[in-house]
Design a protein around this nucleic acid. Structure first.
Lengths: 181, 181
DNA sequence: CCACTCTGCGTACGATCGTACACATCGCCC
DNA sequence: GGGCGATGTGTACGATCGTACGCAGAGTGG
């Protein structure tokens, strides 16, 4: 016995596995036992590292939202002028944000939690704040707000509507919003 | 004993109570027992009227999405020209859609389910289809698409961001999207 | 007015859940 | 090298879950 006595990344690995599990079965479907099994750690390790499921979920979604924001900033920072900034936004909508099914599901799980519990709303607030800040490197604040909302709506409709908006539609929508008033 | 032998609206009442309960504690938090208690029906009545929790949830969200769509169509049907149509969209964003906390939470719960299970995606598809059709009474199809996405994004950001977009921002965003290309 | 069917209910069962807690093992300091 | 915190683990408990199932009444045809 006594395998893996020293496993310093265990806590972090649990968080990652928890995210994968949430993506698969939803917040409603996760349990300490399932996470423990998926992460290949004993059940007692859950209560040792996390005070409860809430703490684990909050840390998991904090990590998730930070990573998405990182990608967003990265993409926007590569733009140099209006044209490339517009193109970056289109890229974000059609590729980045919900590029994987995992990200799509996790985003909605987070929104659902945020809609009900203020603690999670802090995460979405920070997320949206960073998005807007990144957009404001290229657009005025009001336009950035609109763009951020447009990105949100288009990505959701891309994911949840069988007739996804065509690429030209996305490009045109970004053009209209970013057209000088 | 033997109270309420004849109770023809029972099934419908269970569905309504289930929606309220989901709004309160989330899909993750509902159970046959809690719904039964809230609806003041015996536990056995749950399995009698519904094959399982899935069936109950699906019917509940079908009812919810239909009622939201009804309100959307109602609001858009009252518009008579471009100006009133634009105003109607602004009204929808700033008042109707997530006017109540209940609607906000239920919408996200539904989206979360739809992101993972195709059965629920049929509901969101129908919902978005009806929204677009209502918008197309006043705008061309491509613009209707963009508008629908914009409504989605703005309502979400209104709900999940402490710094909600101001009313003029919403008006301006609608104006830009609906400006003739 | 009896018997039979069908609607609806109470309860009980096995599974699974979160959490607590006693115990094993390791690294370290004297 | 021997004791002693610190770290990590296994198990057991009470609660809650979905669901099945036997039974009680009400309605109805004869």
């Amino acid at each position: 016995m006594t395998v893996r006595r020293h496993d310093p990344d265990r806590r972090s690995r649990i968080i990652d596995v928890c995210l994968d599990l949430v993506a698969e079965v939803g917040v409603a479907g996760v349990s300490h036992r399932k996470v423990a099994a998926a992460a290949d750690v004993p059940l007692g390790s859950m209560t040792y590292h996390f005070a409860g499921m809430d703490e684990l979920l909050r840390e998991a979604f904090a990590r998730f939202s930070r990573s998405v924001s990182d990608g967003f900033e990265q993409r926007m920072s590569e733009a140099t002028d209006l044209a490339t900034a517009r193109a970056a936004v289109v890229e974000i909508i059609t590729r980045d944000v919900f590029g994987t099914h995992r990200d799509l599901v996790l985003t909605h799980e987070l929104y659902t939690l945020a809609a009900r519990e203020p603690a999670y709303r802090e995460l979405t607030n920070a997320w949206m704040g960073r998005s807007r800040a990144a957009l404001e490197r290229h657009f005025d604040p009001v336009t950035a707000r609109m763009l951020d909302a447009l990105i949100e709506g288009l990505t959701i409709h891309r994911a949840l509507d069988t007739e996804a908006p065509r690429h030209e539609t996305v490009t045109e929508a970004v053009r209209r919003i970013t057209a000088a008033g």
